[in-house]
Structures are given as C-alpha cells and as structure tokens.
C-alpha cells in the first residue's frame, strides 16, 4: 500500500466515511418516512422489543405494562424517527461496522 493513493486525499476519505455512516444511520429514518408499511413494521418490532425488555427486567405484571406503555408511546408512536436513528446507530457501532469503515477508509487512503 505504500506510495499508493486510493483516495486523492484524507479529506475525501473522511467525506466518504461520513457519507457511508450517514447512509447507514439516516437510511432507516428516510425509509420509515417514505413508506407507511415499513413504518408500521418498524413500530411493531420496536414495541415488542421494548415490552420484552421491560417484562424481562421488571417481571410480568401491571407495572411492566404501564412502563412499557409509556415508553412505547414516547419512542414508537411520538418519535419513531429518533428511535430508528438510535437503533441504527446502536447496530452500526455495536456490531463493529463503523470501526470497519474507519479502518478501511484510513488504510485505503494509503499515506506514504
């Protein structure tokens, strides 16, 4: 890799990195704004995930239903775009995709 420049400069590599991350993080947000079906599917999955998490932590009962109801209203009904972005960020960062892009774009920038 020494002496080769796959990208013209580190600035272009950085711009491409940010664009890739933006596609991964804002893609789901734009999708749920464009398609009502995808939005409903995402809301269903998010609601079930929230209820399951609270039922496992608090235990089955009225309290878990009330808390999960409030959280589902806030994060699924009122702010689905924010939830989609946070969810996508969590997966992109948590599964190491962002690290892979950072290292990849840096190494292929080929300073030397």
């Amino acid at each position: 890799m020494k002496g080769q420049f796959v990208f013209a400069s580190p600035a272009i590599a950085l711009a491409l990195l940010l664009a890739t991350l933006a596609v991964f993080i804002l893609g789901p947000v734009i999708l749920i704004h464009m398609s009502p079906i995808i939005r409903v599917i995402f809301q269903l999955i998010a609601a079930v995930t929230i209820y399951d998490w609270i039922k496992n932590t608090v235990g089955p009962g009225i309290l878990s239903l009330v808390i999960s109801g409030i959280l589902i209203y806030i994060f699924v009904i009122a702010l689905p775009g924010l939830t989609a972005a946070l969810w996508a960020t969590y997966y992109v960062v948590g599964m190491g995709l962002a690290s892979m892009f950072i290292w990849g774009f840096t190494i292929f920038s080929g300073k030397g």
Binding site: L26, V29, I30, H33, I70, L71, I74, F75, A78, L79, P80, G81, L82, A85
Partner: peptide, 15 residues
C-alpha cells in the same frame, strides 16, 4: 427527520 424531536424534548427526557 426525527418527527419534531426538538419540540418534544421533555418527552425524550421522560423516556
């Protein structure tokens, strides 16, 4: 993009 998140900031804090 995020459905009026700045106006509903108190809701986010509650969450």
């Amino acid at each position: 993009l995020f459905g009026g998140v700045l106006e509903k900031f108190n809701l986010v804090i509650l969450g």
